[in-house]
Amino acid sequence: MMNMPQQRKEMKYMDNSKMLLGIYDNPDLTLDATKNLIAQGYDVHDVYTPFAVHNLDRVLGVKRTRLSIAAFLFAMTGLTSAILLQTYASYFDWPMNVGGKPNLHIPTYIPITFELSILFTAFGMVGCFFIVNRMFWGRNTDIMDLRVTDDRFVIAVNIHEGQTDVSELSSLFVKGGALEVREREKDI
């Protein structure tokens, strides 16, 4: 909320093959430590948490998701398909007299159109989510630390050879309340 960079600059280096992880057990401490690290100019790769921590996305300068726009487009696709399907089936291909209703029976379109819009949106969004996050069959997910799936919070900072002072960084981590600091190879 206060003095937060809206958009963190993308830092691209050739040698960022290692990361230092600070492992926390408290969302508030994690948030404050992340703010602090960014303010000090460290290249925070990402923060991994077991649940959504409010404001963390703003601190990290994560762009707002475009998933909602995709969802709307999927819904409109579903809506159009449903209307075309019903009009084709009941008006052009096989007109039937059901209870004297007109063959172009618009009010009864509503439930099917609604359901197909929802179906297309749901499948489309799940598909989008998998593609954007590069999750496919047979792909091993690289988890920073297995405990982030339970109750730990991990801040991962890229180490740049000759620019990042690792000992100063790890003391910053510990000062911010980290339970554990360790280095790992970067392979994602």
Binding site: G99, G100, P107, T108, I110, P111
Partner: peptide
């Protein structure tokens, strides 16, 4: 609104 209208329109 639809639930009320649709059933009445359909049952006639």
């Amino acid at each position: 609104w639809v639930a009320q209208f649709l059933l009445i329109w359909y049952a006639n």
